[in-house]
Design a protein around this nucleic acid. Structure first.
Length: 294
DNA sequence: CGTGGCCCCTGTGGGC
DNA sequence: TGCCCACAGGGGCCAC
């Protein structure tokens, strides 16, 4: 996504930013609680703050598109930043001038929440970029600057693509919680979600329920390198499309074909032939091989 | 302070 | 066909 958005946006101007659903955006001064909390009926009476199009980069020129973990930042040459998180069902689509967004799986196209119009520096239309998310677990953080962005990202762990055993050990510390719960914590490693946690634990031969503090040094090393290879392979395949995910050009990812345990509870383990166990860890469905992972 | 539980939301697929 | 339930790529808050 980052690469596709960078090639579509870097050097272009943001002509306008339109918000179709205010609760898919968090602006500075909004009450805490994340997406959807500020305007929901029956909640605290706090009104959302006024959201200017400038807070969503209108009038700026895109200098770079950066990513840390699951968060994607659009940064302008004058130092403004907006941050996108896909949640479970989010998409960011790039549409050529004159084209329409199809409704698509999960009715994503019927849930467009933010639309940016972009243009070449000479003014020729560059089409538009649309953030969609039916469930609205994702959203856009508006009104950031680069310092605010770095501050947010400093609270996250190292990005999963570059994690090492030493980083992992330092972040796990003496925690008694299940290693899978620790991996899902974005302050430990940024970017690990339910699919890749299970896949990496399988790759490393570590059971998801093991206490984080009980991992040996070599197990932490194996887990870090399993994370990196799982991420590399999934990126190479364009990501995991269970149903909703699409690249910015609308193509689904093909990494689901690489999953060795995720979504395969009850099936035979590809390594030992035993039955893959499906259970719950940290309130998330978890699949692992009780023979290969211990 | 660290943790588990609960909740936010919409869509889909299976059982009856 | 329709209704109800379970479940889904995430993460913030709150009570223990």
């Amino acid at each position: 996504m980052r690469r596709a958005l960078a090639s579509a946006l870097v050097g272009r101007r943001v002509v306008s930013a339109r918000v179709h659903r205010r609760d898919a955006v968090v602006a500075p001064g909004d009450p805490p609680g994340g997406f959807g909390r500020s305007t929901r009926a029956g909640r605290a009476p706090a009104r959302p703050t006024r959201l200017t199009s400038s807070a969503l980069l209108a009038g700026g020129q895109i200098r770079s598109v950066e990513r840390h973990g699951k968060q994607l930042a659009l940064i302008t040459t004058d130092g403004r930043a907006a941050l996108i998180h896909l949640g479970m069902t989010g998409q960011v689509r790039v549409l050529a001038p004159g084209t329409r967004l199809e409704v698509g799986p999960g009715r994503a196209g019927a849930h467009a929440h933010v639309t940016w119009r972009v243009a070449d520096p000479e003014g020729a239309s560059g089409g538009r970029v649309v953030f969609c998310d039916p469930r609205r677990f994702g959203g856009v953080w508006a009104g950031l600057d680069e310092a605010g962005l770095r501050e947010r990202w400093a609270r996250l762990g190292p990005d999963g693509l570059g994690v090492t055993g030493a980083m992992l050990r330092a972040r796990l510390g003496g925690s008694a919680r299940a290693i899978k719960a620790a991996l899902l914590d974005q302050a430990v490693v940024a970017g690990v979600g339910n699919i890749y946690a299970d896949e990496a634990l399988f790759g490393a031969g570590v059971a998801p329920t093991r206490a984080a503090r009980d991992l040996s040094e070599s197990e932490a090393d194996a887990l870090a390198s399993a994370l990196v290879s799982v991420f590399r392979a999934a990126l190479e395949a364009g990501g995991s499309t269970l149903r909703d995910y699409r690249a910015p050009d609308g193509t689904p990812g093909r990494a689901t074909g690489l999953h060795r345990v995720y979504g395969r509870g009850g099936e035979a383990c590809g390594a030992c032939g035993g039955v893959l166990t499906r259970t719950q860890v940290a309130q998330r469905t978890t699949v692992f091989c009780p023979v290969c992972q211990c």
